[in-house]
Nucleic acid binder design. Structure first.
Length: 671
DNA sequence: TACGTGGCGCTTTTT
DNA sequence: GCGCCACGTA
């Protein structure tokens, strides 16, 4: 084999590092940021400046002559990637351009766009989100010769979960079924057939799902003589954020890229691994020192976020877990005014009333509403609280529900573009035509077959859509809208070449969708506004393929300055699941419904591993609080939940706390 | 295809 | 106790 000699970017003349790491970081952070090349594990406790450390690590590499494109920075969320890259750019504006940074999925997308054929896809493939995937799975039943209405089979939604777990955890269908869906074990063979049919369909439609972005990338990277070798040479330094939440597939993705240089720094907190149900394996981080022999281990344990009282409770909360790196959060802040509060309430209604009244009290004390959060294990735990807050006129927002790009009206108009860009996209086509009055599943299917025949083996339409659909019949009820639709298709993709995304969106809304939206949606105005926002967002993109990929991979639009200002004006309390609160902090945090069966969730309480994850979730919840932490539990489950009244025990996580870590509040009725 | 009614099931959701 | 989906009917 030829010898490889790697030239590093020449170090700038008199290149005394501009940044004084010892002054900007604490000793633990600085040690990690300036670590020598080679494998390294950074155990970063909650609130310890993990992002800061990672940011300075990148800066340190750049300052020491590593070229930006030799750095790969992997995160789980777009927000995290964006934030870190922006902070690096702030530190070193001149040298940071060209870093490969993004989510696992977006980096996978980038690789596959460069080498689609190597894994059987064609350029311009589109990305299915979860809903698209389910739509496609419905079609797949027919392919495999099964009746989708047959109740024995898992619903598309569950099927998607099964396939996803299999891919992400590197398990066979049978293993997944045995572990999580034992009532489907008898159908192992059939489900396997469905999976094969699904794979064929994706290739035929030239579409990939989220999991493919990783799995096909791994397949691309695996061969020693394939394109992977190029990237193994290129990425001399790999950094991974939130490593505790990686699954088996992601771990392999990283390992494949790190094979050559072995200069990989993974950062995370095993105590905050809370996504095992999505395939995350906390074992990845726990075993890292074994998998990468000679790995340096750094610990960042100084917590800048919370008062010592809150940290004492947090440390006690996680102590019950055995599978963890022992660590203790060390407070940097002076003692706060009070210990965390533990509040026993009669029932859910009283809990809601208590939280509401305490929030009002805090507001009177000068705490702003957006510095307060109420966290819970499951969204329905917040139902009574929502009623109570509304009754008292306390504004709140809930971090749940559909994200911007997943809303029906957004997906509807985007489907026009998807079909224009990729005329093989049956799912997008059917979604579009079903918007027309008088056209349902069977008419959509007929139209699709007609179009498929006209398209032939090509991946791009050469003539006009009018020609392609010549002779296709629709009912009298649909005729007018159908003509209008064909006209629109030809406008947004003349000769099969799609126009710029914002122009296409404007055409679609104006010609077809606006009328539909008016008749269909009670909140037409809001939706119309969203569509304008979407079109404006699209202006950044010239290439429709790139725009569509971005939509699939990004869950929220950047807040415009206008909306930011608007939301600054009216402060709101945050209501959030603990999962969605990870990485965030508030001055005052309430954790509610701390009952056996609720938190820990009944479904995880039976297995030791499940219970440890619930305990980590509790740990994540309490470590969100800066100044004040309030834990509450009702004694009875009443209206607001199903099944009638029931006594409930306080959570075992409360029993596990030493009594001197909190102060009990006695709540009594004042009327 | 569109609309009304009964039955079922009901954690979390980075991409 | 409610909402969604699937099935029945026009």
């Amino acid at each position: 084999m030829a010898r490889t000699f790697t030239l590093n970017r020449p170090v700038r003349a008199n290149a005394a590092p501009a940044l004084d790491y010892a002054a900007l970081l604490n000793a633990q952070q600085a040690a990690a940021a300036t670590a020598a090349p080679g494998p390294a594990l950074v155990i970063a406790g909650a609130g310890s400046g993990k992002t800061r450390t990672l940011t300075y690590r990148v800066a340190y590499l750049l300052e020491n002559g590593v070229a930006p494109q030799q750095i790969l920075l992997l995160t789980f969320t777009n927000k995290a990637a964006k934030e870190m890259l922006a902070r690096v750019a702030d530190l070193l504006p001149e040298t940071s351009q060209g870093i490969w940074g993004g989510t696992f999925h977006s980096i996978g997308n980038r690789l596959l766009r460069r080498h689609p054929e190597a894994v059987g896809f064609k350029p311009g493939f589109s990305i299915l989100d979860r809903e698209d995937q389910e739509d496609l799975l419905k079609l797949v039943f027919g392919d495999a010769g099964f009746d989708p209405k047959d109740k024995r089979y898992p619903k598309p939604e569950v099927l998607g979960d099964i396939f996803s777990l299999a891919v992400n955890m590197g398990l066979s269908i049978e293993e997944v079924l045995l572990r999580k869906y034992d009532y489907f074990v008898a159908l192992t063979e059939e489900i396997g057939k469905l999976q094969a049919a699904y794979e064929r369909r994706k290739l035929a439609l030239n579409v990939v799902d989220f999991d493919d972005l990783l799995e096909k990338s791994v397949r691309l990277l695996r061969p020693a003589d394939g394109p992977g070798e190029h990237y193994r040479r290129q990425f001399q330094f790999i950094l991974v954020d939130e490593y505790q939440d990686t699954n088996r597939l992601q771990a392999e993705f990283i390992d494949l890229l790190a094979q050559r240089h072995r200069s990989i720094m993974v950062v995370g907190d095993d105590a905050q691994s809370i996504y095992s149900w999505r395939g995350a394996e906390v074992q990845n981080i726990l075993d890292f020192p074994q998998r990468y022999a000679g790995a340096a281990v750094y610990r960042i344990e100084t917590n800048y976020r919370s008062t010592p009282q809150i940290l004492e409770l947090a440390n006690a909360a996680i102590a019950g877990n055995t599978r963890q790196f022992q660590k203790t959060l060390v407070p940097a802040r002076p003692p706060g005014a009070a210990k965390p509060a533990l509040v026993e309430l009669m029932d859910g209604a009283q809990q809601a009333l208590f939280v509401t009244q305490r929030i009002l009290e805090l507001r009177d004390e000068g705490v702003e509403l957006d510095e307060i959060a109420v966290l819970y294990r499951a969204h329905f735990h917040a139902m009574e609280l929502q009623l109570e807050l509304t009754r008292h006129g306390v504004p709140f927002h809930i971090t749940s529900g559909l994200r911007f790009f997943e809303q029906a009206h957004i997906k509807d108009v985007v489907s026009f573009l998807k079909f224009a860009v990729n005329p093989r996209d049956e799912v997008a086509f059917k979604r579009v035509v079903r918007l027309l009055p008088g056209i349902g599943g069977s008419a959509a299917d007929k139209l699709w077959r007609h179009f498929e025949a006209a398209l032939g083996p090509r991946d791009r339409l050469e003539g006009s859509f009018h020609e392609a659909f010549a002779g296709a019949k629709v009912g009298a009820k649909s005729a007018k809208a159908w003509t209008q639709l064909l006209y629109t298709f030809d406008e947004i993709a003349p000769q099969g070449q799609s126009v710029a995304p914002h122009a296409a969106l404007e055409s679609v809304v104006e010609a077809v969708y606006d009328d539909y939206a008016k008749s269909k949606f009670p909140n037409y105005d809001q939706r119309r506004e969203d569509l304008v926002t979407l079109a404006n967002y699209a202006r950044q993109y010239q290439d429709p393929t790139e725009f569509l990929a971005e939509l699939a991979l990004v869950s929220a639009v950047e807040q415009t300055d206008a909306t930011k200002r608007a939301s600054d004006d009216d402060e709101r309390v945050t209501l959030s699941s603990v999962h969605q609160a990870k990485g965030l902090e508030w001055k005052v945090v309430f954790v509610i419904s701390l009952n056996e069966g609720s938190f820990p969730s009944q479904r995880n309480a039976d297995s030791p591993a499940g219970l440890e994850e619930e305990r980590r979730l509790f740990y994540v919840a309490v470590t969100r609080a800066c100044d004040e932490l309030v834990l509450t539990y009702p004694n009875m489950r009443t209206m607001g939940s199903y099944g009638g009244d029931l006594f409930m025990r306080p959570s075992r996580f409360i029993d596990e706390l030493p009594e001197d870590t909190y102060e009990r509040w006695d709540v009594e009725r004042g009327w």
